[in-house]
């Protein structure tokens, strides 16, 4: 268990993702509309590197013959077999209760004044924060 700074907000814009190894565990961190999410980089099906898959949207549940596309940028497609996962909670689309990938909390923390050597404090903007993954 630990906190790991994995980068600065300014360098991790919306719609991007990174894969990395933290505490020996492969993970993927995603910025979805300026909220950060971390998933284990291993598909529960056959162990594929899930987090290198395509980030996209999905056809939402609909009536037969009807197509409703949505959730653009929130869905991760496994690079091997194409299983869809919800980046925001790690749950698969086809069986969210039984098929899911482990998630980790991600927070954005302000740069501390001491770290930047400034004496006065200012309101912290998101851009100046650092991204922390909690294992």
């Amino acid at each position: 268990m630990g906190k790991h700074v994995i980068g600065a907000v300014a360098e991790f814009p919306a719609g991007t993702r990174r894969t990395m190894v933290v505490e020996g565990r492969p993970i993927g961190v995603f910025n979805v509309n300026n909220t950060y999410y971390a998933l284990k980089n291993s598909c529960p099906h056959q162990g594929a590197p899930l987090c290198v898959g395509t980030v996209t949207g999905m056809t939402l549940p609909s009536r037969p013959g009807e197509y409703v596309y949505g959730r653009e940028g929130e869905i991760l497609i496994c690079p091997w077999h194409g299983w869809e996962f919800d980046i925001t909670n790690g749950k698969s689309i086809f069986d969210p209760h039984k098929c899911l990938v482990k998630t980790y909390d991600v927070t954005v923390e302000a740069e501390e004044a001491g770290e930047t050597g400034e004496l006065e404090t200012y309101p912290v903007t998101v851009e100046s924060g650092k991204i922390v993954v909690h294992m």
């Binding site: 590197p49 898959g53 395509t54 497609i77 690079p79 091997w80 194409g82």
Partner: peptide
């Protein structure tokens, strides 16, 4: 053709 991906992306 597979509408999602025809090959392993990796």
């Amino acid at each position: 053709g597979n509408p999602v991906q025809g090959d392993r992306v990796d």
